[in-house]
C-alpha cells in the first residue's frame, strides 16, 4: 500500500443551493466544508458520520453525481473536480457504486440480466450472447445462478438484491467502488454475508472501497483506515484499529460511546458514567472555531475562536482537536487520550 494514491481529495467543498422566499433568491449551504482524504489502490477507507455530516455528499461528488464547489479530486492523475460531474467513459467504468437501499436501487421494470449487463452494454462492444455469459459469471461470483437472470428484482430478498447490485457494480472491474451504507437496510444475519462477499471480492480483484456508514463498529471490521465526519468537517482520520480503540477526537469518542454494546452490564456502567458528563449544548453547530465546540465536554476557550488544524495522533492519522496540540496544555489530556473510549 505504498503506491501512489488512487483517489486524493484536497479541500473538497460541496454546496447545495436552496431557493428561498418566492424562489427568486437562492441561498447556498455547504454540506462538505473542505475535506482532505486519500485512498490507495486496494485499500478500504471507512467514512463515518451521522446524518447531515456530509458523508453521502462526498460519495455523490466522487461518483460524479454532483459537481464540487471547490477543491480537487485527483483520481489516478486526473482531476475529477475539473470535469464538473461529466466523466468520460473511461473514468466512469473505473468508479462504481453500491447504494444503501436494495429495494429502490434496482429498477423494478428490468430483469436481473438487464441490470447486471447494463454497464457492459454502455461501455463495451460485447454481443448479447457475450454479455449474457459474463452476467452468468458475475452472478456466480455473488452466489446467484443463471436461473435468476430472467427474474425481476421484486422476486428477491433484500440480501439477494444487494448481491445483484454488487454483481452489476463489479461488472467492469472498477478500481474504486463507493459503498453507500451497503448493509444498513439488511437483516443482521444477511449483513455479514454481504460484508464477507465484498471483502472477498476486494482481495480477489484488488478494488479499493470508499465505505460510507454510520456504524463505527461495522466500519471497523472491514476498513483499513477510518475517517470521521462531523457537520461537513473531517474531524479525525487514521488506521482503523487506532481510531476504534484509541479515538483522539472527543466526537469520535462520543460516537463510539453511543454505539450500544452487547454486554448489558457494561451498558449500565457506561450509561451511569455518561450521565455524569456535563450537559451538552443544544445548538449542534458552532459558528466559529471548532464545529464540535458546542457539544464537547472538554471544550477550552480557544476552541470557540480558532478552528483547530490537523494534529498528528500517536499511533497514526490526524485529528482536528486542540487537545492534541503539543505546544499547549495538551499534556494533561494526553494520558486520557491513550485510554480507549468508555468501556
Amino acid at each position: 500500500m505504498t503506491d501512489a494514491p488512487l483517489l486524493e481529495l484536497r479541500d473538497l467543498r460541496v454546496s447545495y443551493r436552496k431557493r428561498a422566499g418566492l424562489g427568486l433568491r437562492t441561498t447556498s449551504f455547504d454540506a462538505v466544508k473542505g475535506a482532505t482524504l486519500t485512498i490507495r489502490p486496494g485499500e478500504t477507507l471507512g467514512l463515518v458520520g451521522e446524518s447531515g455530516s456530509g458523508k453521502s455528499s462526498i460519495a455523490n461528488t466522487v461518483l460524479g453525481l454532483i459537481a464540487p464547489a471547490a477543491g480537487t479530486m485527483r483520481f489516478r492523475g486526473t482531476d475529477l473536480a475539473a470535469l464538473k460531474a461529466r466523466y468520460p467513459s473511461g473514468l466512469r467504468k473505473d468508479i462504481q457504486a453500491v447504494f444503501q437501499d436494495p429495494f429502490s436501487s434496482l429498477n423494478p421494470a428490468m430483469t436481473v440480466e438487464d441490470i447486471v449487463t447494463e454497464p457492459l452494454r454502455v461501455h463495451t462492444n460485447m454481443t448479447r450472447a457475450e454479455r449474457r455469459a459474463r452476467a452468468v459469471d458475475l452472478l456466480a461470483m455473488v452466489s446467484l445462478s443463471e436461473e435468476h437472470l430472467n427474474r425481476h428484482p421484486h422476486q428477491f430478498s433484500g440480501g439477494q438484491r444487494q448481491r445483484i447490485a454488487i454483481a452489476s457494480a463489479l461488472a467492469l472491474e472498477p478500481k474504486l467502488v463507493v459503498l453507500d451504507e451497503p448493509v444498513s437496510a439488511l437483516d443482521v444475519s444477511t449483513q455479514n454475508q454481504i460484508i464477507n462477499l465484498l471483502y472477498d471480492r476486494r482481495d480477489a480483484l484488488g478494488i479499493a472501497y470508499l465505505l460510507i456508514a454510520h456504524d463505527l463498529a461495522l466500519v471497523h471490521h472491514i476498513s483499513d483506515r477510518i475517517a470521521v465526519m462531523y457537520l461537513g468537517h473531517i474531524v479525525e482520520e487514521g488506521p482503523a484499529d487506532r481510531v476504534y480503540t484509541a479515538p483522539a477526537h472527543p466526537y469520535t469518542r462520543a460516537l463510539l460511546d453511543a454505539v450500544p454494546d452487547l454486554d448489558p452490564a457494561q451498558q449500565r456502567a457506561r450509561r451511569a458514567r455518561r450521565r455524569q458528563l456535563a450537559p451538552q449544548g443544544t445548538q449542534r453547530h458552532a459558528e466559529t472555531g471548532c464545529p464540535y465546540s458546542n457539544r464537547c465536554a472538554q471544550v477550552m476557550p480557544r476552541c470557540r475562536s480558532d478552528a483547530p488544524p490537523a494534529y498528528a495522533v500517536p499511533g497514526g492519522g490526524t485529528a482536528h482537536c486542540f487537545l492534541l496540540d503539543p505546544g499547549a496544555n495538551g499534556a494533561g489530556h494526553a494520558s486520557d487520550r491513550k485510554e480507549p473510549a468508555l468501556p
Binding site: 453525481l65 457504486a97 444503501q100 429502490s104 447494463e118
Partner: peptide, 25 residues
Amino acid sequence: EVYVRSARVVGTGDARILIRHIFPN
C-alpha cells in the same frame, strides 16, 4: 430513485436512462 442514480454512475446516457430505465415505469 436510487436506480436512476445507479444508472448514471454506470455511465448510461440521458436518452437511454429516459427510454430504457424510466419509460417502462
